[in-house]
């Protein structure tokens, strides 16, 4: 018998030996009032290879899915990266929609010539103009400014965590100023 085994056994005996009245009378009381537990061992079953595969396949079908986006802490790093794609899709989607609409405009009698759009836009109230310009300028400015960061990372520069955060906030600031300038100042 090894030393540690002897120690374990004696420690277990020391624990089992009743040391107080509660310890002495609790087990019989539990039996008498039917509040004790009976420990049952899990019985293992021998199954064939194919049955085992089936059980495994069923378990695989109930595998957990990876955590959703919203469990991650909001951080400037991945928020701007996501926003870069969102603004890009918005810009490209607008371009595609306008091109398709321009191509289809003779069929429906729409007037999408620049002169017609400019004439109708000029008649809008100033608030609507500024809001529309902001809505168009924001994705354009952000995607342009943030793309410079992405292109910098592609050269493996400015790539430490701190630098990414700093350039990220710089991009946010530049986007705010330039969007405001395009919407109001230009």
């Amino acid at each position: 018998m090894s030393t540690s085994r002897i120690l374990q056994t004696s420690a277990r005996r020391a624990l089992i030996r009743p040391t107080s009245l509660v310890a002495k009378f609790a087990p019989p009381a539990a039996f008498a009032t039917n509040t004790h537990y009976v420990q049952r061992r899990q019985v293992t079953q021998q199954v064939s290879q194919s049955t085992g595969e089936e059980i495994l396949a069923k378990q695989r079908l109930r595998r957990p899915v990876s955590p959703h986006l919203s469990i991650y802490q909001p951080q400037i790093t991945w928020y701007l990266s996501a926003l870069n794609r969102i603004t890009g899709v918005a810009l490209s989607g607008s371009l595609y929609l306008f091109s398709a609409a321009y191509l289809a405009s003779p069929l429906f009698g729409w007037h999408l010539e620049s002169s017609a759009i400019a004439a109708s836009f000029a008649a809008w109230p100033i608030v609507a103009k500024v809001l529309t310009k902001s809505a168009l300028a924001f994705p354009f400015v952000f995607h342009t400014v943030n793309s410079l960061r992405h292109l910098t990372w592609d050269m493996a520069k400015q790539i430490t965590n701190k630098q990414v955060q700093q350039t990220g906030w710089a991009a946010v600031g530049a986007t705010a100023i330039l969007t405001l300038y395009l919407a109001v100042g230009l």
Binding site: S99, A101, Y102, L103, S114
Partner: peptide, 23 residues
């Protein structure tokens, strides 16, 4: 579709950048 539409716009209108500036 987008390519053909833009080609049509470029050849019939005043060009993308000029059109945006005008509007």
């Amino acid at each position: 579709i987008a390519g053909v539409g833009l080609y049509s716009f470029e050849t019939n209108d005043i060009g993308l950048t000029a059109a945006i500036a005008r509007v």
